[in-house]
């Protein structure tokens, strides 16, 4: 055993460490690429990004903000699920318990609510940014479509979550909202009935909205988000205006 080896090397050279972190410090282009492509969490990210697109005013980071808000919503949402009961007798009292007697309950619920509002805002602004920078143009036109699907999922999650407190505001908002859906031609009234599980907002509507909110929509969103981020990488990272320095 040589005394010159640093103790930290012992850890970083260990088999366990190497099984998690396969590459050493990336000091050449190949290793830098491998750091991204050989990691499941990083591989959606482009290996190389344009220096220009790193300026914060280029994209305002709105897509990243949306992802972070989504993660906050998943985390706080799972915490809320430990107390919430989707029954018309117990939903509102459960919400009250979370707000009034659970330690950090009010903070958790407020985080969930504010992040939900902010996520709708961030997603819409992200769409506006993409539109005004022309980033929807080929080869990124397919990713725009995926983005529209993600917008609909976001609004769907926002709408279904709105019913869950089961107070007067949420009850009548969903009554009016589902009736607006009922005005859609041909399929309108069927969509409305299938969504509510009946003619009016009641227990059947609450459990359906709950299941959509906590299971179906988040899973669909994770799938669509993965495709969305992967397409960004496949389409060559953020769109860059190559003519900017000319004009």
């Amino acid at each position: 055993m040589s005394e010159s080896i640093k103790p930290s090397r012992k850890i970083t050279d260990s088999r366990i460490w190497r099984s998690f972190f396969r590459h050493g410090w990336p000091d050449n282009p190949l290793d830098r690429s491998l750091t991204m492509t050989s990691n499941v969490f990083f591989h959606l990210h482009p290996v190389k990004v344009s220096r220009k697109s790193l300026a914060w005013s280029y994209s305002f980071g709105l897509g990243v903000i949306s992802v972070i808000l989504f993660l906050v919503l998943v985390f706080t949402g799972v915490l809320l699920m430990f107390y919430y009961v989707p029954s018309i007798e117990r939903a509102y009292p459960a919400m009250n318990t979370i707000q009034l007697s659970v330690p950090m309950g009010q903070f958790t619920r407020n985080m969930h609510r504010w992040s939900a509002h902010l996520m709708v805002l961030a997603v819409v602004l992200h769409m506006v940014r993409v539109f005004y920078t022309g980033a929807y143009k080929p080869p990124r036109e397919f990713n725009w479509v995926v983005g529209v699907v993600l917008l609909l999922f976001t609004l769907g999650a926002s709408f279904t979550g709105y019913l869950l407190p089961w107070d007067q505001l949420s009850y009548w908002a969903i009554t009016v909202g589902s009736n607006i859906a009922g005005y859609a031609p041909v399929v309108g009234s069927t969509v409305r009935e299938m969504l509510l599980g009946g003619q009016e907002v009641g227990q059947d509507a609450l459990i359906r909205f709950y299941t959509l909110h906590i299971a179906l929509l988040p899973v669909l969103m994770v799938v669509a988000m993965s495709v969305h981020l992967w397409r960004v990488r496949k389409d060559g990272g953020l769109a860059v205006n190559h003519n900017e320095h000319n004009g």
Binding site: E193, M194, L196, G197, G198, Q199, E200, D204
Partner: peptide, 12 residues
Amino acid sequence: YFKPRIQPGSFG
């Protein structure tokens, strides 16, 4: 499966 069900004697 998803079609609304109706309890007899109540609304619906």
